[in-house]
């Protein structure tokens, strides 16, 4: 295998992993605060369509990305109001968010079906980008760098700052955090908004970089895979990043196998990422001690402060 081919495969793996990384890091922060938001798929779809629409009508991709962030946050705010203020069931509300987001993105995106979009140019870091093979890591698109930066920042925030400690306290025992005087609802709302912003970014990456166009249901279950990645990574940013690369690899494996004409029906190859998700979840869940050590103890529980 030539170095060029290897580079090509590595590049496709990274581009496939980036949206997963965005979405799962955002959801990780949300879940660390004790909120399970199953609406990632819906927020991603909205990010994708708003990102594309803004970039297309202003001709500015950066504005599109900002628009996608706001779209994801708006959807997350809706979820936050329903689950945190109206203490509705988080699982059902998350499903509602997914259905609503997929529908609304289709409604908005109707005008943009078949419109060609402009991809995001890659950024080369001088000096490093000329290195053989690993030089590739220094000529990626800016959003991929952003994803890596967010992952590192989240890791630092959660485990090295006071704010992160409060966030984790709220997620582990909202009653204790409330008794200590922290506003559980406010902390959770911020975490939900951060998750929404990241899902919006993931969507923008899909419609502006990965396949620079808008198609109906283009998220294709990636939001759900991102949710599984958080479990796979046992709520730790570094492991989630590894998981994102692994899943990027699986989805690329499928594309390459199809291109090489492997004698397996294409549908079976397309089912690979979903089957892998199930298998990986089983393997990680078997180790109950590992999962229990990092699962936010109050995950999915509603909180109504006593007044």
């Amino acid at each position: 295998m030539t170095a060029l081919m290897l580079e090509g495969i590595l590049l496709t793996i990274i581009t496939a992993a980036t949206p997963l990384l965005f979405a799962s890091i955002g959801e990780l922060v949300t879940e660390r605060s004790g909120v399970l938001n199953l609406g990632v798929e819906g927020m991603m779809a909205m990010g994708a369509v708003i990102g594309f629409a803004v970039a297309h009508s202003t001709g500015n991709i950066a504005l599109g990305v900002v628009g996608a962030i706001f779209a994801g946050m708006a959807m997350a705010a809706l979820f936050g109001v329903v689950t945190l203020i109206f203490v509705a069931n988080q699982v059902a509300s998350g499903l509602a968010l997914t259905l609503f987001g997929l529908g609304l993105s289709g409604l908005i995106g109707d005008a943009f079906v078949g419109v060609p979009g402009a991809g995001l140019a890659r950024v080369s870091i001088p000096g490093l980008s000329d290195l053989p093979v690993i030089g590739l890591l220094f000529r990626l698109d800016p959003l991929t760098y952003l994803a890596v930066a967010i992952t590192i920042a989240v890791s630092w925030f959660l485990f090295r700052t006071r704010g992160g400690l409060i966030l984790r306290a709220v997620g582990d025992s909202h009653v204790s955090a409330h008794a200590l005087g922290y506003s559980v609802i406010r902390v959770r709302f911020m975490a939900v908004l951060f998750g929404g912003a990241c899902s919006g970014l993931a969507g923008a990456y899909l419609s502006l970089v990965y396949t620079p166009q808008w198609t109906q249901a283009m998220t294709a279950g990636r939001g759900w895979i991102a949710l599984a990645l958080v479990v796979f990574g046992t709520w730790l940013p570094g492991r989630v990043a590894v998981g994102a690369l692994l899943f990027g690899g699986v989805s690329i494996l499928q594309l390459h196998a199809q291109a090489l004409g492997v004698g397996v029906p294409s549908q079976f190859l397309s089912a690979l990422p979903y089957l892998t998700t199930v298998i990986v979840l089983v393997i990680i869940s078997r180790n109950r001690a590992l999962v229990r050590a990092n699962t936010p103890a109050a995950l999915g529980q509603s909180f109504v402060p006593d007044r």
């Binding site: 819906g42 509300s93 968010l97 259905l99 609503f100 529908g103 993105s105 409604l107 109906q216």
Partner: peptide
């Protein structure tokens, strides 16, 4: 997609 928008909104 109008149907799905309505359905999602209703569940919310």
């Amino acid at each position: 997609q109008t149907t799905r928008v309505f359905q999602g909104m209703l569940l919310f």
